[in-house]
Computed example of a mutant assay.
Amino acid sequence: MPELPEVETTRSGIAPHIQGQRISGVVVRQPRLRWPIPGNLGDLLGGRTVRAVERRAKYLLLRLSNGSLILHLGMSGSLRILPRDTVPGKHDHFDLLFKQCCLRLRDPRRFGAVLWTDQPVEQHPLIAHLGPEPLSEEFNGVYLHRQAQQRRVAIKNLIMDGRVVVGVGNIYANEALFRAGIHPARPAGRISLARCARLAEEIKQVLAAAIIQGGTTLRDFQQEDGKPGYFAQELLVYGKAGSPCPGCGNPLKQQRIGQRSSVYCSRCQR
């Protein structure tokens, strides 16, 4: 699934092509995604200008004068900037047309979303409950420690909870916890303020580095220009169970925590 760095890479890639441009049409080839694409989307968007291309968690927000288009890439979706006359493929379900190009959603598993709201997007049911952005000043060690107080849930599950902080998916949770020296199964309430501060900082650094590198390509993700992300080359533990720990050489272990695979070093992470 595309995680926050992949979605941010997509946002920064498509924004220069469509921000400030007028929408000339909409093509819906398959309306049945995770939720149905609104049938009147063409009437709502036609002739409107994209004022801004933003991201909230893993949602892309196209801001227009009359509302916001909410896009989600689902499990394997991607967005491309293409010439208008590019022949669509089997899984190309949605096009947003502009004078010089089209923005095309490809979604083989159809878990993505194309939604519309004419209300403040911050109040949309999919967005209203979300926690702070991990790269914001609001997310820091004091905030994380406060959220962890008297919580028995594993720290990995806590930082992957979008109500606590958005966008820390499985890959980056593994990496940040290793770099912070914290065992992924450790109860959140047993982690000190100092260690929460270290973890919050490592989350920021891992995500920032992944954004610079263009995200992490493991299965499906590619950037809007078709080039893969390269942060996978810098992963220290994710997907490397049984390999020597980069810190001490001890074999990395793996266990399932919250239904997700967790790789860690039993010697370096406590």
Rank of each mutant, 00 (worst) to 15 (best):
S78D: 13
R104G: 00
C101S: 04
F94E: 07
P83M: 01
K99M: 06
H91G: 09
R84Q: 10
G77S: 07
I81R: 13
F98I: 04
K99T: 09
D85H: 14
R104V: 00
D85F: 07
R104Y: 00
G77Y: 01
L96W: 08
P88Q: 09
K90A: 14
L103Q: 06
G89V: 02
R106V: 06
R106N: 09
R104Q: 02
G89C: 05
R106A: 02
F98T: 05
K99W: 05
D85L: 11
R80G: 01
H93I: 15
T86V: 08
F94K: 10
D95K: 06
V87D: 11
L103I: 06
G89L: 04
R104E: 00
L79V: 04
R106F: 02
L96M: 15
F98G: 05
R106K: 07
L96C: 13
D95E: 15
D95S: 06
R84C: 09
H91A: 13
V87W: 08
Q100T: 09
L82D: 04
H93T: 15
H93F: 15
R80D: 11
D92F: 02
I81E: 12
R84H: 08
F98Q: 07
P83K: 10
L105V: 07
L97R: 04
R106P: 01
L97F: 00
F94R: 10
L105I: 07
T86I: 07
L97A: 03
H91E: 13
F98E: 04
L79E: 01
D95A: 03
C101N: 07
V87T: 12
P83F: 03
T86G: 10
D92K: 01
D85S: 13
D92V: 05
C101M: 05
L103P: 08
H91M: 12
Q100A: 11
R104W: 00
R80N: 12
L79M: 04
L105D: 03
T86M: 12
R104P: 00
L105G: 02
D92H: 03
H91I: 11
D92P: 00
K90I: 14
R106G: 02
